[in-house]
Simulated assay, not measured.
Amino acid sequence: MTYAFTSNDARDAFAAFPPRSRTTLMAVRAMIFDIAAAFPPDQNIGCLKETTKWGQPSYATPDTKFATPIRLGLSKADDPAIFTHCQSTVMADFRALAPPELKFDGNRAVHLLNNHPPKLNELAPLIRAALTYRL
């Protein structure tokens, strides 16, 4: 599904990504919105809000504060990446269960492939864990 941008800053951040990375990161963006929308009513995580933090698109639930922010950007190696707060356990917990071919940057990021839509079954546990971190 395609989601309209609600933040001009986030839209501009995506426009600034190199096209080879933008494709992958836009697919992750849609995945974040799809997963957030799929939570059952009894597990209401609150409204997902798209903003920017440090110039990167960021996704959180400011009304409930259940989520630890998920940011999308480029790693130091210039790979598209998903970032979570390094002081949360989200990335470390995900790393313990993740497929061995995924590349990580410590407890802060998982690297993705350029021009390659990420696999939902691989990244969904990370996104769900971040969206429900304080639930």
Rank of each mutant, 00 (worst) to 15 (best):
M1I: 09
T2V: 08
T2N: 11
T2W: 02
A4Y: 08
F5S: 07
F5E: 04
S7N: 08
R11G: 01
R11Y: 03
A13W: 00
F14K: 05
A15E: 12
P18H: 14
P19I: 03
R22C: 05
R22L: 05
T23A: 12
T23V: 13
T24V: 07
R29I: 01
A30C: 11
I32L: 08
I32A: 10
F33P: 00
F33M: 12
D34R: 06
D34I: 12
I35N: 02
A36H: 10
A37Q: 12
A37R: 12
A38F: 01
F39Q: 07
P40Q: 03
P40F: 14
Q43L: 05
I45L: 12
G46V: 04
L48G: 10
K49Y: 07
K49H: 09
T52E: 02
K53V: 04
W54Q: 03
W54E: 01
W54Y: 15
Q56P: 00
Q56T: 04
Q56E: 00
P57V: 05
P57C: 11
S58I: 08
Y59R: 00
Y59V: 09
A60T: 14
D63Y: 01
F66Y: 15
F66Q: 11
A67W: 11
T68M: 10
T68R: 04
T68Q: 03
P69C: 10
P69F: 13
P69I: 14
I70H: 01
I70V: 15
R71H: 12
G73V: 07
G73Y: 01
G73D: 01
L74C: 06
S75C: 08
S75V: 10
A77K: 09
D78Q: 08
P80F: 02
I82N: 02
I82C: 09
I82R: 00
F83D: 03
F83Q: 08
H85W: 06
C86Q: 08
C86H: 09
C86R: 11
Q87C: 06
Q87E: 12
S88I: 09
T89R: 13
T89H: 10
V90T: 13
M91F: 09
M91E: 10
F94H: 02
